[in-house]
């Protein structure tokens, strides 16, 4: 259903190669990480790998696995959103606990020799917010994935601030380490397609909790801002 919808959207753009593009996108997003899993697993099984490389290869396998998982989770989310199967279930959650968990999980994924540094910034005061934990976690995870595809190498910071008693804003910022070169991955058509799907998932998920997401960028950084309603209490 989702593919058909995307197909129809792209058809409106009168793109003669729509079907090929879409298949190419799905193929790229699933086959590339799976080939990585198979390739690095084979290398590990050969037994001819140093201890340091073993760690690196295992980290690559794990990251590739998470990439496929996240991709399919977005497809499932979008399908369930369309059929109204995702229901908002707000609960009291510790924002620092949620974000620290996401940051920790990403650091594990990216491994010891990571090209992206990920930090939760102003975590001196913890806030308890009343919102849907699953939706917020999926939105933040998707934004981080988008930033990874945008900046290749650099810094991702997560920062939040209270706008008023009912709304808060979260800024997730990707800052490049060096100037963008002509081979930046975010310029590829596969990356654009991936961005489209991920951005659509972000918009629809944040819409579920009556929030909004926006993005701005320049040569140095890409900034996603998420504004969402919540009931607050400071711990």
């Amino acid at each position: 259903m989702l593919y058909r919808q995307r197909y129809e959207e792209l058809s409106k753009q009168e793109d003669a190669n729509t079907e090929e593009r879409l298949l190419s996108h799905v193929s790229h997003r699933v086959r590339t990480p799976l080939n990585s899993v198979i390739g690095f697993s084979k290398l590990l099984m050969s037994g001819d790998v140093s201890r340091a490389r073993t760690q690196e290869f295992a980290e690559r396998i794990m990251d590739s696995g998470y990439q496929v998982l996240q991709y399919f989770q977005n497809l499932i989310d979008l399908s369930e959103l369309e059929s109204g199967m995702i229901k908002v279930k707000p609960s009291r959650i510790s924002l620092n606990q949620l974000l620290t968990g996401i940051v920790g999980s990403y650091r594990d994924r990216l491994g010891t020799d990571r090209s992206i540094d990920l930090y939760l910034m102003n975590n001196e005061k913890d806030l308890t917010v009343f919102t849907d934990e699953y939706v917020l976690e999926r939105v933040v995870n998707n934004v981080i994935e988008l930033l990874r595809s945008h900046i290749d190498e650099g810094l991702v910071t997560i920062e939040y601030e209270v706008l008023n008693k009912e709304r808060m804003s979260m800024e997730i910022r990707g800052i490049r380490s060096s100037e963008v070169n002509g081979h930046n991955a975010s310029n590829s058509s596969e990356s654009e397609e991936y961005d489209y799907f991920t951005w659509k998932a972000i918009q629809q998920l944040i819409g579920l909790i009556n929030g909004k997401a926006a993005c701005r960028s320049d040569d140095h950084e890409v900034i996603y801002t998420i504004v969402f309603p919540c009931e607050l209490s400071t711990r």
């Binding site: 540094d117 930090y119 939760l120 910034m121 102003n122 975590n123 001196e124 650099g154 810094l155 910071t157 800052i175 490049r176 380490s177 060096s178 100037e179 040569d219 140095h220 950084e221």
Partner: peptide, 19 residues
Amino acid sequence: CKQYLVGTLIELTDGNHYL
């Protein structure tokens, strides 16, 4: 302290970060 294209990140011993 680590420099990026926009600013410099500082990590402190208490776990806080500043850009």
